[in-house]
Design a protein around this nucleic acid. Structure first.
Lengths: 232, 232
DNA sequence: AGCATTAACCATACGTCGTATGGTACAGAA
DNA sequence: TTCTGTACCATACGACGTATGGTTAATGCT
Protein backbone atom coordinates (compact mmCIF):
# COMPACT_ATOMS: atom_id res chain seq x y z
CA UNK A 1 0.00 0.00 0.00
CA UNK A 2 1.73 3.06 -1.20
CA UNK A 3 0.44 6.53 -0.75
CA UNK A 4 -2.51 5.91 1.53
CA UNK A 5 -2.65 9.55 2.68
CA UNK A 6 -5.74 11.23 1.38
CA UNK A 7 -3.93 14.35 0.29
CA UNK A 8 -0.90 12.53 -1.07
CA UNK A 9 0.32 14.48 -4.05
CA UNK A 10 1.49 11.33 -5.83
CA UNK A 11 -1.23 9.14 -7.16
CA UNK A 12 -1.43 6.57 -9.85
CA UNK A 13 -4.43 5.74 -11.93
CA UNK A 14 -7.34 7.85 -12.94
CA UNK A 15 -8.00 10.84 -10.71
CA UNK A 16 -11.32 11.24 -8.93
CA UNK A 17 -14.02 13.31 -10.53
CA UNK A 18 -13.23 16.97 -10.45
CA UNK A 19 -9.60 16.31 -9.66
CA UNK A 20 -8.36 16.03 -13.21
CA UNK A 21 -5.23 18.02 -13.58
CA UNK A 22 -5.16 18.29 -17.33
CA UNK A 23 -7.32 19.54 -20.14
CA UNK A 24 -6.58 20.62 -23.66
CA UNK A 25 -7.14 24.18 -22.60
CA UNK A 26 -4.87 24.02 -19.56
CA UNK A 27 -2.13 22.33 -21.53
CA UNK A 28 -2.22 24.93 -24.27
CA UNK A 29 -2.18 27.76 -21.78
CA UNK A 30 0.87 26.32 -20.06
CA UNK A 31 2.55 25.77 -23.40
CA UNK A 32 1.90 29.35 -24.40
CA UNK A 33 3.45 30.57 -21.20
CA UNK A 34 6.56 28.54 -21.80
CA UNK A 35 6.89 29.80 -25.35
CA UNK A 36 6.34 33.40 -24.33
CA UNK A 37 8.67 33.26 -21.36
CA UNK A 38 11.49 31.06 -22.57
CA UNK A 39 11.23 30.69 -26.31
CA UNK A 40 9.94 28.03 -28.62
CA UNK A 41 12.84 25.66 -28.18
CA UNK A 42 12.15 25.51 -24.45
CA UNK A 43 8.72 24.09 -25.16
CA UNK A 44 9.39 20.39 -24.90
CA UNK A 45 6.85 17.81 -23.90
CA UNK A 46 8.86 16.99 -20.81
CA UNK A 47 9.17 20.63 -19.81
CA UNK A 48 5.48 21.15 -20.44
CA UNK A 49 4.60 18.15 -18.30
CA UNK A 50 6.86 19.39 -15.54
CA UNK A 51 5.18 22.79 -15.34
CA UNK A 52 1.84 21.03 -15.22
CA UNK A 53 3.06 18.75 -12.45
CA UNK A 54 2.35 15.70 -14.51
CA UNK A 55 4.02 12.79 -16.25
CA UNK A 56 5.02 13.58 -19.83
CA UNK A 57 2.88 10.81 -21.24
CA UNK A 58 -0.25 12.18 -19.64
CA UNK A 59 -0.34 15.00 -22.13
CA UNK A 60 -0.90 12.52 -24.91
CA UNK A 61 -4.37 11.77 -23.60
CA UNK A 62 -5.42 15.25 -24.56
CA UNK A 63 -3.30 16.02 -27.60
CA UNK A 64 -1.93 13.45 -30.02
CA UNK A 65 1.61 14.81 -30.31
CA UNK A 66 3.81 17.84 -30.06
CA UNK A 67 2.79 19.17 -33.46
CA UNK A 68 -0.79 19.27 -32.24
CA UNK A 69 0.30 21.39 -29.32
CA UNK A 70 1.81 23.95 -31.65
CA UNK A 71 -1.20 23.81 -33.93
CA UNK A 72 -3.35 24.55 -30.91
CA UNK A 73 -1.16 27.49 -30.02
CA UNK A 74 -1.49 28.83 -33.54
CA UNK A 75 -5.24 28.68 -33.16
CA UNK A 76 -5.01 30.63 -29.95
CA UNK A 77 -3.05 33.34 -31.68
CA UNK A 78 -5.54 33.70 -34.52
CA UNK A 79 -8.45 33.57 -32.13
CA UNK A 80 -6.99 36.69 -30.59
CA UNK A 81 -7.22 38.68 -33.79
CA UNK A 82 -9.42 41.47 -32.65
CA UNK A 83 -11.06 42.92 -35.70
CA UNK A 84 -12.57 46.24 -34.83
CA UNK A 85 -15.17 46.43 -37.61
CA UNK A 86 -16.18 50.06 -37.29
CA UNK A 87 -19.05 49.41 -39.65
CA UNK A 88 -19.35 50.77 -43.14
CA UNK A 89 -19.44 54.36 -42.04
CA UNK A 90 -15.69 54.48 -42.36
CA UNK A 91 -13.95 54.54 -45.77
CA UNK A 92 -12.93 51.12 -47.00
CA UNK A 93 -9.27 52.13 -46.85
CA UNK A 94 -9.43 52.66 -43.11
CA UNK A 95 -11.44 49.50 -42.67
CA UNK A 96 -8.74 47.55 -44.47
CA UNK A 97 -5.98 49.16 -42.48
CA UNK A 98 -7.77 48.39 -39.24
CA UNK A 99 -8.04 44.74 -40.16
CA UNK A 100 -4.36 44.65 -41.04
CA UNK A 101 -3.38 46.25 -37.75
CA UNK A 102 -5.46 43.78 -35.79
CA UNK A 103 -3.86 40.90 -37.64
CA UNK A 104 -0.36 42.22 -37.03
CA UNK A 105 -1.07 42.87 -33.37
CA UNK A 106 -2.19 39.31 -32.85
CA UNK A 107 1.07 38.03 -34.30
CA UNK A 108 3.05 40.57 -32.33
CA UNK A 109 1.52 39.48 -29.04
CA UNK A 110 3.57 36.28 -29.06
CA UNK A 111 6.77 36.93 -30.97
CA UNK A 112 8.33 33.63 -30.05
CA UNK A 113 5.42 31.89 -31.67
CA UNK A 114 5.26 33.92 -34.85
CA UNK A 115 7.58 31.74 -36.86
CA UNK A 116 5.70 28.62 -35.89
CA UNK A 117 2.34 30.17 -36.65
CA UNK A 118 3.40 31.48 -40.02
CA UNK A 119 4.95 28.24 -41.15
CA UNK A 120 2.47 25.70 -39.87
CA UNK A 121 0.15 25.01 -42.75
CA UNK A 122 -1.74 22.40 -40.79
CA UNK A 123 -2.95 25.10 -38.45
CA UNK A 124 -5.15 26.65 -41.11
CA UNK A 125 -8.37 25.97 -39.33
CA UNK A 126 -11.76 27.61 -39.44
CA UNK A 127 -10.46 30.18 -37.02
CA UNK A 128 -7.90 31.35 -39.53
CA UNK A 129 -10.34 31.37 -42.39
CA UNK A 130 -12.81 33.58 -40.61
CA UNK A 131 -9.97 35.82 -39.57
CA UNK A 132 -9.57 37.10 -43.09
CA UNK A 133 -13.21 38.02 -43.55
CA UNK A 134 -12.69 41.70 -42.63
CA UNK A 135 -10.12 42.02 -45.41
CA UNK A 136 -12.60 40.67 -47.90
CA UNK A 137 -15.33 42.90 -46.65
CA UNK A 138 -13.30 46.08 -46.94
CA UNK A 139 -12.13 45.31 -50.46
CA UNK A 140 -15.58 44.28 -51.51
CA UNK A 141 -16.79 47.69 -50.46
CA UNK A 142 -14.03 49.20 -52.57
CA UNK A 143 -15.85 47.79 -55.56
CA UNK A 144 -13.25 45.29 -56.72
CA UNK A 145 -14.02 42.12 -58.61
CA UNK A 146 -13.76 38.79 -56.79
CA UNK A 147 -10.47 38.06 -58.51
CA UNK A 148 -9.09 41.47 -57.58
CA UNK A 149 -10.23 41.05 -54.01
CA UNK A 150 -8.60 37.66 -53.83
CA UNK A 151 -5.25 38.84 -55.18
CA UNK A 152 -5.29 41.94 -53.02
CA UNK A 153 -5.95 40.07 -49.81
CA UNK A 154 -3.16 37.64 -50.62
CA UNK A 155 -0.74 40.47 -51.27
CA UNK A 156 -1.67 42.30 -48.10
CA UNK A 157 -1.45 39.21 -45.93
CA UNK A 158 1.86 38.22 -47.46
CA UNK A 159 3.18 41.63 -46.53
CA UNK A 160 1.94 41.29 -42.97
CA UNK A 161 3.49 37.86 -42.69
CA UNK A 162 6.85 39.00 -43.94
CA UNK A 163 6.75 42.08 -41.76
CA UNK A 164 5.82 40.08 -38.68
CA UNK A 165 8.58 37.64 -39.35
CA UNK A 166 11.11 40.43 -39.25
CA UNK A 167 9.49 42.07 -36.29
CA UNK A 168 9.44 38.86 -34.30
CA UNK A 169 13.08 38.22 -35.04
CA UNK A 170 14.16 41.52 -33.58
CA UNK A 171 11.95 41.47 -30.51
CA UNK A 172 11.78 45.15 -29.81
CA UNK A 173 9.51 47.99 -30.82
CA UNK A 174 12.36 50.03 -32.07
CA UNK A 175 15.59 49.18 -33.69
CA UNK A 176 18.77 51.21 -33.70
CA UNK A 177 20.85 50.37 -36.68
CA UNK A 178 22.93 53.43 -36.25
CA UNK A 179 26.45 52.17 -35.67
CA UNK A 180 25.66 48.52 -36.22
CA UNK A 181 24.52 48.45 -39.80
CA UNK A 182 26.29 51.64 -40.71
CA UNK A 183 29.79 50.46 -40.00
CA UNK A 184 29.05 47.09 -41.52
CA UNK A 185 27.87 48.68 -44.73
CA UNK A 186 30.91 50.92 -44.83
CA UNK A 187 33.20 47.93 -44.41
CA UNK A 188 31.84 46.21 -47.46
CA UNK A 189 34.17 45.47 -50.34
CA UNK A 190 34.38 48.86 -51.95
CA UNK A 191 31.79 49.51 -54.60
CA UNK A 192 29.73 46.45 -53.83
CA UNK A 193 26.71 48.39 -52.70
CA UNK A 194 27.16 52.09 -53.38
CA UNK A 195 23.52 53.09 -53.27
CA UNK A 196 22.82 51.17 -50.11
CA UNK A 197 25.88 52.73 -48.53
CA UNK A 198 24.82 56.21 -49.52
CA UNK A 199 21.27 55.74 -48.28
CA UNK A 200 22.33 54.30 -44.95
CA UNK A 201 24.90 57.05 -44.43
CA UNK A 202 22.35 59.68 -45.24
CA UNK A 203 19.92 58.16 -42.78
CA UNK A 204 22.66 57.93 -40.19
CA UNK A 205 22.95 61.72 -40.22
CA UNK A 206 19.44 62.12 -38.95
CA UNK A 207 20.09 59.74 -36.09
CA UNK A 208 18.53 56.69 -37.60
CA UNK A 209 16.37 54.38 -35.65
CA UNK A 210 13.76 52.18 -37.13
CA UNK A 211 10.31 52.08 -35.60
CA UNK A 212 8.38 48.98 -36.51
CA UNK A 213 4.97 50.56 -36.19
CA UNK A 214 5.97 53.39 -38.48
CA UNK A 215 7.35 50.89 -40.95
CA UNK A 216 4.13 48.94 -40.85
CA UNK A 217 2.03 52.01 -41.47
CA UNK A 218 4.27 52.97 -44.35
CA UNK A 219 3.84 49.61 -46.00
CA UNK A 220 0.13 49.67 -45.37
CA UNK A 221 -0.24 53.05 -47.02
CA UNK A 222 1.78 51.92 -50.00
CA UNK A 223 -0.40 48.86 -50.43
CA UNK A 224 -3.71 50.65 -50.08
CA UNK A 225 -2.57 53.30 -52.54
CA UNK A 226 -1.38 50.52 -54.78
CA UNK A 227 -4.76 48.80 -54.75
CA UNK A 228 -6.45 52.03 -55.64
CA UNK A 229 -4.02 52.86 -58.40
CA UNK A 230 -4.00 49.37 -59.85
CA UNK A 231 -7.66 48.39 -59.84
CA UNK A 232 -9.39 51.64 -60.63
CA UNK B 1 48.79 -2.25 -35.61
CA UNK B 2 45.35 -2.02 -37.02
CA UNK B 3 44.52 -1.28 -40.60
CA UNK B 4 47.96 -1.58 -42.14
CA UNK B 5 46.52 -1.99 -45.64
CA UNK B 6 47.35 1.02 -47.73
CA UNK B 7 43.89 1.31 -49.25
CA UNK B 8 41.99 0.47 -46.08
CA UNK B 9 38.81 2.49 -46.06
CA UNK B 10 38.82 2.83 -42.27
CA UNK B 11 41.52 5.00 -40.90
CA UNK B 12 42.01 6.89 -37.74
CA UNK B 13 44.01 10.04 -37.30
CA UNK B 14 44.72 12.77 -39.72
CA UNK B 15 44.45 11.82 -43.40
CA UNK B 16 47.47 12.10 -45.67
CA UNK B 17 47.91 15.26 -47.67
CA UNK B 18 45.38 15.53 -50.45
CA UNK B 19 43.23 12.83 -48.93
CA UNK B 20 41.11 15.09 -46.77
CA UNK B 21 37.51 14.12 -47.14
CA UNK B 22 35.87 17.20 -45.71
CA UNK B 23 35.77 20.89 -46.28
CA UNK B 24 33.30 23.58 -45.39
CA UNK B 25 32.22 23.71 -48.98
CA UNK B 26 31.75 19.96 -49.37
CA UNK B 27 29.81 19.75 -46.13
CA UNK B 28 27.46 22.55 -47.09
CA UNK B 29 26.85 21.04 -50.51
CA UNK B 30 25.98 17.70 -48.99
CA UNK B 31 23.73 19.40 -46.46
CA UNK B 32 21.93 21.28 -49.20
CA UNK B 33 21.31 18.05 -51.07
CA UNK B 34 19.81 16.44 -48.00
CA UNK B 35 17.56 19.40 -47.35
CA UNK B 36 16.43 19.59 -50.97
CA UNK B 37 15.86 15.86 -51.32
CA UNK B 38 14.46 14.88 -47.96
CA UNK B 39 13.44 18.01 -46.11
CA UNK B 40 14.94 20.07 -43.39
CA UNK B 41 14.20 17.67 -40.57
CA UNK B 42 16.20 14.98 -42.33
CA UNK B 43 19.28 17.16 -42.07
CA UNK B 44 20.84 15.86 -38.90
CA UNK B 45 24.52 15.93 -38.14
CA UNK B 46 24.62 12.17 -38.10
CA UNK B 47 22.82 11.87 -41.40
CA UNK B 48 25.10 14.49 -42.89
CA UNK B 49 28.18 12.65 -41.68
CA UNK B 50 26.85 9.40 -43.08
CA UNK B 51 26.40 10.80 -46.58
CA UNK B 52 29.91 12.19 -46.38
CA UNK B 53 31.24 8.82 -45.25
CA UNK B 54 32.61 10.29 -42.10
CA UNK B 55 32.24 10.25 -38.35
CA UNK B 56 29.69 12.79 -37.08
CA UNK B 57 32.26 14.56 -34.95
CA UNK B 58 34.52 15.22 -37.89
CA UNK B 59 32.14 17.84 -39.17
CA UNK B 60 32.82 19.95 -36.11
CA UNK B 61 36.34 20.60 -37.32
CA UNK B 62 34.92 22.65 -40.16
CA UNK B 63 31.74 24.12 -38.70
CA UNK B 64 31.15 24.84 -35.02
CA UNK B 65 27.64 23.42 -34.75
CA UNK B 66 24.45 22.60 -36.56
CA UNK B 67 23.25 26.19 -36.52
CA UNK B 68 26.38 27.16 -38.43
CA UNK B 69 25.52 24.59 -41.07
CA UNK B 70 22.13 26.18 -41.60
CA UNK B 71 23.63 29.64 -41.59
CA UNK B 72 26.00 28.49 -44.28
CA UNK B 73 23.11 27.15 -46.30
CA UNK B 74 21.31 30.47 -45.98
CA UNK B 75 24.38 32.16 -47.37
CA UNK B 76 24.39 29.79 -50.31
CA UNK B 77 20.81 30.69 -51.07
CA UNK B 78 21.43 34.41 -51.03
CA UNK B 79 24.62 34.02 -53.03
CA UNK B 80 22.40 32.54 -55.74
CA UNK B 81 20.33 35.68 -56.06
CA UNK B 82 20.92 36.45 -59.65
CA UNK B 83 20.27 40.12 -60.11
CA UNK B 84 19.95 40.85 -63.76
CA UNK B 85 20.80 44.55 -63.67
CA UNK B 86 19.76 45.55 -67.18
CA UNK B 87 21.42 48.88 -66.69
CA UNK B 88 19.66 52.17 -66.39
CA UNK B 89 18.20 52.02 -69.86
CA UNK B 90 15.17 50.28 -68.44
CA UNK B 91 12.55 52.16 -66.38
CA UNK B 92 13.14 51.96 -62.66
CA UNK B 93 9.87 50.08 -62.24
CA UNK B 94 11.10 47.19 -64.34
CA UNK B 95 14.47 47.30 -62.65
CA UNK B 96 12.79 46.96 -59.29
CA UNK B 97 10.55 44.15 -60.46
CA UNK B 98 13.53 42.31 -61.89
CA UNK B 99 15.35 42.50 -58.58
CA UNK B 100 12.28 41.25 -56.78
CA UNK B 101 11.88 38.31 -59.16
CA UNK B 102 15.50 37.35 -58.73
CA UNK B 103 15.15 37.45 -54.98
CA UNK B 104 12.01 35.33 -55.05
CA UNK B 105 13.55 32.84 -57.43
CA UNK B 106 16.50 32.32 -55.14
CA UNK B 107 14.17 31.51 -52.27
CA UNK B 108 12.05 29.32 -54.49
CA UNK B 109 15.02 27.24 -55.60
CA UNK B 110 15.19 25.52 -52.23
CA UNK B 111 11.70 25.47 -50.77
CA UNK B 112 12.63 23.22 -47.89
CA UNK B 113 15.15 25.79 -46.82
CA UNK B 114 12.98 28.87 -47.15
CA UNK B 115 11.64 28.81 -43.63
CA UNK B 116 15.10 28.46 -42.18
CA UNK B 117 16.53 31.20 -44.34
CA UNK B 118 13.75 33.64 -43.55
CA UNK B 119 13.90 33.08 -39.83
CA UNK B 120 17.61 32.88 -39.20
CA UNK B 121 18.66 36.36 -38.23
CA UNK B 122 22.21 35.27 -37.60
CA UNK B 123 22.57 34.53 -41.30
CA UNK B 124 22.42 38.19 -42.21
CA UNK B 125 25.92 38.37 -43.56
CA UNK B 126 27.56 40.60 -46.11
CA UNK B 127 26.14 38.41 -48.82
CA UNK B 128 22.64 39.30 -47.76
CA UNK B 129 23.40 42.96 -47.41
CA UNK B 130 24.77 43.27 -50.91
CA UNK B 131 21.81 41.32 -52.18
CA UNK B 132 19.51 44.24 -51.56
CA UNK B 133 21.61 46.76 -53.46
CA UNK B 134 19.60 46.43 -56.70
CA UNK B 135 16.46 47.40 -54.83
CA UNK B 136 18.13 50.52 -53.53
CA UNK B 137 19.49 51.38 -56.93
CA UNK B 138 16.15 51.15 -58.67
CA UNK B 139 14.37 53.26 -56.09
CA UNK B 140 17.16 55.77 -56.06
CA UNK B 141 16.65 56.22 -59.77
CA UNK B 142 12.95 56.76 -59.08
CA UNK B 143 14.00 59.92 -57.31
CA UNK B 144 12.92 59.01 -53.79
CA UNK B 145 14.48 60.37 -50.64
CA UNK B 146 16.74 58.09 -48.59
CA UNK B 147 13.99 57.62 -46.05
CA UNK B 148 11.47 56.76 -48.74
CA UNK B 149 13.89 54.34 -50.35
CA UNK B 150 14.52 52.67 -47.05
CA UNK B 151 10.84 52.23 -46.22
CA UNK B 152 10.00 51.06 -49.72
CA UNK B 153 12.69 48.41 -49.79
CA UNK B 154 11.57 47.12 -46.43
CA UNK B 155 7.98 46.91 -47.60
CA UNK B 156 8.88 45.14 -50.80
CA UNK B 157 11.17 42.64 -49.12
CA UNK B 158 8.61 41.96 -46.42
CA UNK B 159 6.12 41.13 -49.15
CA UNK B 160 8.57 38.80 -50.86
CA UNK B 161 9.33 37.09 -47.59
CA UNK B 162 5.68 36.53 -46.77
CA UNK B 163 4.94 35.39 -50.27
CA UNK B 164 7.84 32.98 -50.31
CA UNK B 165 6.80 31.58 -46.99
CA UNK B 166 3.42 30.66 -48.40
CA UNK B 167 4.88 29.42 -51.62
CA UNK B 168 7.37 27.20 -49.88
CA UNK B 169 4.67 25.74 -47.67
CA UNK B 170 2.61 24.60 -50.62
CA UNK B 171 5.45 23.26 -52.73
CA UNK B 172 3.86 23.49 -56.12
CA UNK B 173 3.68 26.06 -58.87
CA UNK B 174 -0.04 25.99 -58.93
CA UNK B 175 -2.64 25.44 -56.34
CA UNK B 176 -6.16 24.14 -56.80
CA UNK B 177 -8.38 25.33 -54.03
CA UNK B 178 -11.46 24.46 -55.97
CA UNK B 179 -13.24 21.85 -53.87
CA UNK B 180 -10.91 22.02 -50.91
CA UNK B 181 -11.31 25.60 -49.77
CA UNK B 182 -14.71 25.99 -51.34
CA UNK B 183 -16.47 23.31 -49.37
CA UNK B 184 -14.67 24.33 -46.21
CA UNK B 185 -15.80 27.88 -46.58
CA UNK B 186 -19.35 26.78 -47.24
CA UNK B 187 -19.34 24.64 -44.13
CA UNK B 188 -18.48 27.54 -41.91
CA UNK B 189 -20.93 28.53 -39.19
CA UNK B 190 -23.50 30.40 -41.19
CA UNK B 191 -22.87 34.08 -41.54
CA UNK B 192 -19.37 33.95 -40.14
CA UNK B 193 -17.70 35.01 -43.34
CA UNK B 194 -20.27 36.05 -45.91
CA UNK B 195 -17.98 38.10 -48.15
CA UNK B 196 -15.27 35.49 -48.18
CA UNK B 197 -17.84 32.85 -49.03
CA UNK B 198 -19.26 34.89 -51.85
CA UNK B 199 -15.85 35.68 -53.32
CA UNK B 200 -14.67 32.10 -53.18
CA UNK B 201 -17.91 30.82 -54.71
CA UNK B 202 -17.67 33.34 -57.48
CA UNK B 203 -14.10 32.33 -58.18
CA UNK B 204 -15.10 28.68 -58.10
CA UNK B 205 -17.36 29.28 -61.08
CA UNK B 206 -14.46 30.20 -63.27
CA UNK B 207 -12.59 27.04 -62.28
CA UNK B 208 -10.33 28.53 -59.71
CA UNK B 209 -6.75 27.61 -59.47
CA UNK B 210 -4.11 29.80 -57.99
CA UNK B 211 -0.87 30.36 -59.85
CA UNK B 212 1.93 31.54 -57.62
CA UNK B 213 3.79 33.40 -60.32
CA UNK B 214 0.67 35.31 -61.27
CA UNK B 215 0.07 36.10 -57.64
CA UNK B 216 3.60 37.37 -57.27
CA UNK B 217 3.31 39.60 -60.30
CA UNK B 218 0.05 40.95 -59.03
CA UNK B 219 1.57 41.89 -55.70
CA UNK B 220 4.58 43.37 -57.39
CA UNK B 221 2.44 45.57 -59.59
CA UNK B 222 0.42 46.73 -56.63
CA UNK B 223 3.56 47.66 -54.74
CA UNK B 224 5.24 49.49 -57.58
CA UNK B 225 2.04 51.41 -58.27
CA UNK B 226 1.82 52.08 -54.58
CA UNK B 227 5.31 53.53 -54.41
CA UNK B 228 4.54 55.80 -57.34
CA UNK B 229 1.22 56.94 -55.91
CA UNK B 230 2.54 57.44 -52.42
CA UNK B 231 5.85 59.16 -52.94
CA UNK B 232 5.16 61.38 -55.95
C1' DA C 1 -25.98 -4.46 -8.79
C1' DG C 2 -22.48 -6.31 -11.58
C1' DC C 3 -19.45 -6.20 -15.16
C1' DA C 4 -16.89 -4.58 -19.16
C1' DT C 5 -15.10 -0.57 -21.24
C1' DT C 6 -12.98 3.63 -21.40
C1' DA C 7 -10.51 7.68 -19.56
C1' DA C 8 -6.82 9.82 -17.07
C1' DC C 9 -3.09 9.23 -14.92
C1' DC C 10 2.19 7.02 -14.17
C1' DA C 11 6.63 4.15 -15.05
C1' DT C 12 9.75 2.37 -18.03
C1' DA C 13 12.13 2.11 -22.09
C1' DC C 14 13.66 2.73 -27.06
C1' DG C 15 15.79 5.04 -30.64
C1' DT C 16 17.60 9.49 -32.13
C1' DC C 17 19.44 13.74 -31.56
C1' DG C 18 23.48 17.43 -30.78
C1' DT C 19 27.79 17.52 -29.12
C1' DA C 20 31.57 17.15 -25.05
C1' DT C 21 35.58 14.65 -24.25
C1' DG C 22 39.51 12.51 -25.48
C1' DG C 23 41.89 9.77 -28.19
C1' DT C 24 45.27 8.87 -32.87
C1' DA C 25 47.85 9.82 -37.00
C1' DC C 26 49.71 12.99 -40.06
C1' DA C 27 51.47 18.00 -41.60
C1' DG C 28 54.22 21.70 -41.14
C1' DA C 29 57.12 24.78 -38.35
C1' DA C 30 61.10 25.29 -35.23
C1' DT D 1 64.02 15.97 -34.32
C1' DT D 2 60.73 17.59 -31.68
C1' DC D 3 56.65 20.33 -31.05
C1' DT D 4 52.27 22.04 -32.15
C1' DG D 5 48.26 22.05 -34.67
C1' DT D 6 44.94 19.69 -37.71
C1' DA D 7 41.73 16.22 -39.42
C1' DC D 8 40.00 12.40 -38.51
C1' DC D 9 37.53 8.47 -35.10
C1' DA D 10 35.30 6.21 -30.77
C1' DT D 11 32.74 6.60 -26.90
C1' DA D 12 29.53 8.58 -24.09
C1' DC D 13 26.14 11.87 -21.92
C1' DG D 14 21.93 14.08 -21.35
C1' DA D 15 17.66 15.48 -23.59
C1' DC D 16 14.28 14.68 -26.77
C1' DG D 17 9.50 12.56 -28.71
C1' DT D 18 6.78 8.93 -27.88
C1' DA D 19 5.55 3.51 -27.91
C1' DT D 20 4.11 0.22 -24.67
C1' DG D 21 1.86 -1.23 -20.90
C1' DG D 22 0.61 -0.79 -16.38
C1' DT D 23 -3.13 1.20 -12.43
C1' DT D 24 -7.16 3.32 -10.92
C1' DA D 25 -11.65 5.61 -11.23
C1' DA D 26 -15.58 6.90 -13.98
C1' DT D 27 -19.03 5.48 -17.19
C1' DG D 28 -22.15 2.63 -19.98
C1' DC D 29 -24.72 -1.68 -20.45
C1' DT D 30 -27.51 -5.30 -18.88
Amino acid sequence: MVNAGKAGPRRSGRPRSGEERLSRQAILEAALRIVDDEGIEAMTMRRLAATLGVNPMSIYHHLPNKAAVFAGLAELVFADVDSPDPGDAVPWQDQLKGAARAYRNALRAHPNLALQVLSDTSAVSDVVVTTVEPFYRALDRAGLSPRQIFESVNTLIDFIHGFSLGEAAVRADTFDLAPDLLTRVQNLPSGKAPTLTRVVESLGEEGLHYDFSEGFESGLTTLVNGFTATWT
